[in-house]
Amino acid sequence: MKEMTAKEVELLVNEGKVLDIIDVREVDEVAAGKIPAAVNIPLGLVEFRMHELDKSKEYIMVCRSGGRSGRAAQFLEGQGFDVINMAGGMLSWEGKVK
């Protein structure tokens, strides 16, 4: 499984790169703040909403600390998606939140 640090993702966001970020935290966790471009798909719904994703894109998976996003990344990778886990999750995120 590929991984990036929160700092690496933040640098790409600050450079204006268009990233496909999926936040797999629960709705109440996301309400406290998420990466502005991130789409919320709680971990328990990833399997049921993966039809919304495009296999030609690369997705960065995010959660609170990196564990749930790692599980989501492994699952999606097994389904043929190109995914990267953001190691350390939102606990390591120092960038802007929405």
Rank of each mutant, 00 (worst) to 15 (best):
E3S: 09
M4S: 12
T5I: 11
T5E: 09
T5H: 12
A6F: 11
K7L: 15
K7G: 02
E8Y: 07
V9C: 11
V9N: 02
L11A: 15
L11K: 13
L11H: 08
L12A: 10
L12R: 09
V13T: 11
V13W: 03
N14K: 06
N14V: 04
N14H: 05
E15S: 12
G16F: 07
G16I: 05
G16V: 05
G16M: 08
G16H: 10
G16E: 05
G16A: 08
K17R: 12
V18A: 06
L19M: 08
D20Y: 14
D20A: 03
I21Y: 09
I21D: 10
I22A: 14
I22K: 04
I22D: 03
I22G: 04
I22R: 03
D23P: 05
D23R: 10
D23M: 11
D23Q: 12
V24R: 03
R25Y: 10
R25C: 01
E26V: 00
E26W: 15
V27K: 09
V27Y: 14
D28K: 15
D28P: 06
D28G: 01
D28S: 07
E29H: 03
V30A: 09
V30I: 13
A31D: 01
A31C: 00
A32V: 02
A32H: 04
G33R: 12
K34A: 12
I35C: 10
I35S: 04
I35A: 07
P36R: 04
A37M: 13
A38N: 04
A38G: 08
V39Q: 14
V39C: 04
